[in-house]
């Protein structure tokens, strides 16, 4: 493997690792609002590293440009979707578990 490929593989593997971490957080976190933070790890660091790795492999081609647009799409769209979720949950009266509450006590 060439050095570029090794670097790309490391980036891809790291991105995958952060995705797994985010998903583990999705399972471990006690309530909806805290789970949101875990999901945003997937959408930022996980997705970012995977896309960076692929861009490195594609070099200066159209595919790189498309991946860049994909990255921008996630960059703009994911906070919007997350905020919409949070706001909808808030308006539906889902109460966040806060620090003072009994810890780890979930419904």
């Amino acid at each position: 493997m060439t050095p570029v490929e090794i670097l790309a593989m490391v980036l891809l593997a790291l991105g995958g690792l952060f995705c797994v971490i985010g998903a583990v957080g999705l399972l471990r976190m006690p309530d909806f609002y805290t789970r949101m933070h875990a999901a945003s790890v997937i959408e930022t660091l996980g997705a970012g590293l995977v896309i960076a790795g692929l861009m490195l492999l594609a070099g200066l081609t159209l595919a790189t440009a498309k991946l860049a647009i994909l990255g921008l799409l996630i960059f703009f769209a994911s906070p919007t979707a997350t905020h919409a979720l949070a706001k909808a949950a808030h308006e539906r009266g889902i109460v966040p578990v806060l620090e003072g509450d009994a810890s780890g006590d979930e419904k």
Binding site: A8, L12, G16, I42, G46, V50
Partner: peptide, 14 residues
């Protein structure tokens, strides 16, 4: 080979 770790990790995430 380059993609294997990432694919496995993404499948686990899924």
């Amino acid at each position: 080979m380059i993609y294997a770790p990432a694919i496995v990790a993404l499948l686990v995430t899924l």
